[in-house]
């Protein structure tokens, strides 16, 4: 079992994104807002000649936005042919998953429950494994 995970901090909690989904981790300098879109879509940013849709992970989970720090890091993922930059509070190392994702009785709490595949053990303790495609669907998807 050698699933690699990108460990990061989302809304102040430890979370992980499957490393196989992540193309790269970038620092976001400038975001062009897109008026009319839901809150969690911050806008567009350019990576070389491609435009990435920037998603604020905390808002996409339906949680409060954490105060942006200077160094805004984002994981670049591709879902259904579109590129997204998932903005996280902080991005750490890539680590190994020590267990299969498992459900926790009682769930992970509102917001988290929808976008999490389960809890995995890592070297730095239990971490929530994020499901990227549910994450980018945003908090509204559940209601719809």
């Amino acid at each position: 079992m050698t699933d690699l995970l990108l460990q990061c901090l989302v809304a102040g909690r430890h979370a992980a994104i499957p490393a196989s989904d992540v193309q790269s981790v970038i620092e976001i300098e400038e975001i062009t807002p897109i008026p009319g879109t839901p809150d969690f879509i911050l806008g567009l940013t350019a990576l070389r000649s491609q435009a990435l849709t920037v998603i604020d992970c905390s808002l996409a989970l339906g949680l409060a936005k954490t105060v942006a720090e200077d160094d805004q890091r984002a994981a670049v993922v591709e879902v259904e042919g579109h590129l997204y930059a998932l903005l996280v509070d902080a991005a750490y190392d890539v680590g190994e998953a020590l267990s299969q994702p498992v459900a926790v009785p009682g769930g992970f709490g509102a917001g988290w429950q929808r976008a999490a595949r389960g809890m995995v053990e890592t070297e730095s303790g239990p971490t929530l494994l994020i499901d990227t495609s549910s994450l980018i669907a945003g908090p509204m998807a559940e209601a719809a």
Binding site: I34, G36, T37, A51, T53, E80, H82, Y84, I136, G138
Partner: peptide, 12 residues
């Protein structure tokens, strides 16, 4: 270039 479905949904 095409845009993400969530942005497309704005119909703008």
């Amino acid at each position: 270039k095409p845009i993400a479905p969530a942005v497309m949904e704005t119909r703008l």
